[in-house]
Design a binder for these strands. Structure first.
Lengths: 230, 230
DNA sequence: CGTTGTTTTGAGTTTTCTCAACATGTGTGG
DNA sequence: CCACACATGTTGAGAAAACTCAAAACAACG
């Protein structure tokens, strides 16, 4: 059950990202504009016209929505190589903000979509990326809809560790507020969950932004059942 | 703000669905198998091999995940014309169950993806469908992560009414359990929210599965702010 | 070394959930 | 057509989870 929740790398860096980054088989790198933005700056805001879609050359970006009362929902985080901000609509549906200083490659959106559609290979890769995104979104729907605070935080850390590639000294790029806004919790609840995981000896934190998994099995178990193995 | 939450029809019946259904420009209808399933039966279960992808000819289907403890998260509902169960993986990530008796067209998955990738037009339409799905998923992430029970129910009814095309006597195909599993709530909380909306004179219900919007503005307002306009 | 921003902890409130009872429907066999 | 059983939906009371507000600890920075 819930195979969707088994962490995997499928969403992280798809072939299309890698191919586009390294080989430029799209032939689009020439028409792309390079843009540098500082940590905290926004690349685009919800409702903006969307002339470009973007790919991260370096840095880390969050994409979110703001509600009327100022609360936010972070839809996704993107790191090196990932494509984002691509929509078939004329306007952006999210706000993209740099978490660290970033360099991004900006492709003309229409041209990009046109080029992708005209090549069977690119089409397949692009569709693959979109499907991976859809999986990620659905994974998160399960977290948001059906998991307790500690489960969400455990699952979040597990994924961070996987994307990082090892369990030791994983850097948490985003703030507690970002994590909270991603997991549908408050800052305080995220902190308390982290404290609880430390107390239980499941993780260790060298600093607020650096953790390591002490007991991988227990972390997995908490993410799935909310309680440590009896 | 939160333009993502403004209901629109983009996800409902995309061009690709319509085109594929009416004109068979994919040339795939010939290789498709027609399957009939009764209400309550499953078309596929999470983890099953995925030889096909599906399109609804008639009926109404829900796609969900089951957690270890039996709780469910309904990812999406599909109605006539919609394509679903298409994944680039070899196995299904969700379970699909008929809510009403259904007739579905089953396309060989690999062939389908291959055919779509080989035509620029089909590619564009297919990508369009996937993006609409992604929007829908993100809309729901906002609901699940940041909206109160009554906001979620109000937003859900609003969308039902829009998809139905009018505000009067909208049929609620799914059970309270399905709604709860979709909105990340319990049956009881869904009922209480519905009762509250009736009390406030925002909706009327002819029966448990039939509602009409009395005050569209108030419904919208509650979906967005949680409280009726002062 | 103070200033500012972020993270953590604490106490009390609010929301939603759980468990239990009750109501309403729907379908079947007598 | 009625009576019964079974599924679905609604309401209530108390428990649990997460939230809010407030304060304290910790870090980063000039």
């Amino acid at each position: 059950m819930a195979a969707l929740l088994q962490p995997d790398d499928s969403g992280g860096s798809s072939l299309v990202d890698a191919v586009a980054r390294d080989l430029d088989i799209t032939g689009l790198a020439a028409s792309a504009v390079i843009k540098r933005i500082k940590a905290g700056e926004t690349l685009y805001v919800e409702g903006d016209a969307a002339p470009y879609c973007y790919q991260i050359v370096s840095g880390f970006i969050k994409e979110y929505n703001t509600l009327e009362d100022g609360r936010r929902q972070v839809a996704d985080f993107y790191s090196v190589g990932e494509l984002f901000g691509v929509s078939e609509l004329e306007t952006q549906l999210h706000t993209a903000e740099a978490i660290t200083d970033c360099v991004v490659r900006c492709y003309p959106r229409e041209t990009y979509l046109q080029t992708v559609a005209s090549s069977p290979l690119l089409s397949k890769l692009f569709v693959s990326t979109l499907m991976a995104r859809l999986h990620r979104a659905r994974e998160r729907m399960i977290m948001l809809g059906r998991m307790s605070a500690i489960q969400r935080v455990a699952a979040f850390l597990e994924r961070l560790a996987i994307e990082h590639g090892k369990d030791d000294n994983v850097e948490i790029m985003m703030s507690r507020q970002d994590i909270a806004d991603h997991l549908g919790l408050t800052i305080e609840t995220v902190c308390r969950a982290l404290t609880e995981l430390k107390k239980r000896g499941v993780i260790m934190m060298a600093s607020a932004r650096l953790f390591s998994t002490v007991d991988k099995t227990a972390l997995r178990h908490i993410a799935q059942h909310g309680e440590p193995a009896h």
